[in-house]
């Protein structure tokens, strides 16, 4: 339980606040860099000009506005959502291994979307976020129930194992559906690897409002997560209605995960990596961890996506592949430390 220390350990409010402008600055920088770098290199100045003073006749401005800006916005939203969801999950389940992808939520959302589009034929974009939410919620509940049944209760290990089992099961079903319906496979193949390339930004119209609400909700609930992370008895003793709080947090996590999956496909390990990194700097007070995780997650995904775009020039690596490559070693390290 090394990661769960007393709240406010070594975090002075003044010091905690001071990080925000720094992170915001880095975020803006990463955002501009993400837009500037690519097949056609643009200067940061051009990017800023295109964003502030758009001129339709300038080709570079069109590149920025139509091709690169949507992707950068997507990276910010998805990165912030997933790492905030991960931070909340780690607090609620008191589990350093919690992550929307590891605990099966992402697989549930992806499964629901695949079933809806290929079996039920629901291709309208309006439904996709809601279907994804249903899937994520169902998967979360099943994983939690299974882990509860394991002798010893919902420990990090049993949660992770049951998450892995559910993910394996759902991905087997997804594969069966694919084989039965080869036409949708071409469309879904790239989506299912998780990435930000060629995403439909208009989906943001439907996904944006719930994500914004959930992000705000997550930040508002964060102070009480600190208490919850000390254990249910302690939280109840301090007057927190743990049941209601858990339901609210579950709703926030499900909405954030499902909308991220709808936007960018299943991206693993962002929710695992970022909260742990943030915790190194701000201690274990979720009041700070949660907003910092959102900012750092946005920066992280912008950075990863920039790497994905420029690593092997003519081609592009899927973003989800890189997040897994970075996240999996950290997971291994956490398991090593945790079960030593």
């Amino acid at each position: 339980m090394s990661t769960i220390a007393a709240p406010n350990s070594g975090t002075h409010p003044v010091r905690a606040w001071s990080g925000v402008p720094v992170l915001l600055g880095v975020l803006v920088l990463a955002f501009l860099l993400h837009i500037a770098v690519g097949a056609k290199q643009l200067s940061i100045g051009t990017v800023i000009e295109a964003l502030t003073n758009f001129d339709q006749t300038v080709f570079d401005h069109v590149i920025v506005r139509n091709l690169r800006l949507p992707r950068a916005v997507l990276a910010v939203i998805v990165g912030a959502s997933l790492s905030l969801a991960g931070a909340l999950m780690q607090g609620v389940t008191r589990n350093p291994l919690a992550d929307p992808a590891l605990l099966g939520l992402t697989a549930g959302a992806a499964f629901a979307v695949v079933i809806a589009t290929s079996v039920l034929g629901l291709t309208s974009m309006i439904f996709i976020p809601w279907i994804a939410m249903l899937g994520a919620l169902g998967a979360a509940l099943v994983v939690y129930l299974i882990a509860r049944l394991v002798p010893g209760g919902a420990t990090p290990l049993s949660l992770t194992l049951s998450g892995a089992a559910i993910s394996a099961f759902l991905s087997a079903v997804i594969s069966v559906v694919h084989l039965l319906d080869q036409d949708t496979f071409e469309n879904l193949r790239v989506w299912l690897t998780g990435g930000l390339a060629g995403r439909d930004i208009t989906l943001l119209l439907y996904v944006g409002p719930p994500i914004a609400l959930a992000l705000i909700g997550g930040v508002l609930l964060a102070p009480r997560v600190t208490v919850l992370a000390m254990g249910d008895e302690v939280a109840q003793g301090l007057g927190v209605k743990t049941g209601a709080l858990k339901v609210q947090l579950l709703a926030v996590v499900v909405v954030l995960t499902a909308c991220s999956v709808a936007l960018a496909g299943p991206l693993g390990f962002i929710g695992l990596v970022i909260p742990h990194v943030v915790r190194l700097y701000v201690g274990s007070d979720y009041r700070w961890i949660v907003p910092y995780a959102a900012l750092a997650g946005a920066i992280y995904l912008l950075g990863v996506d920039t790497i994905a775009r420029v690593a092997i020039p003519p081609r592009e690596i899927s973003t989800g592949i890189i997040t897994a490559m970075i996240g999996a070693p950290l997971f291994v390290q956490l398991v090593r430390r945790r079960t030593r």
Binding site: G268, S318, A324, A328, F331, V332
Partner: peptide, 15 residues
């Protein structure tokens, strides 16, 4: 759990 972590890493390269 090591196996799960490593196999995710490897599958990401495979995909």
């Amino acid at each position: 759990l090591m196996g799960i972590g490593l196999s995710t890493f490897i599958s990401s390269i495979t995909s």
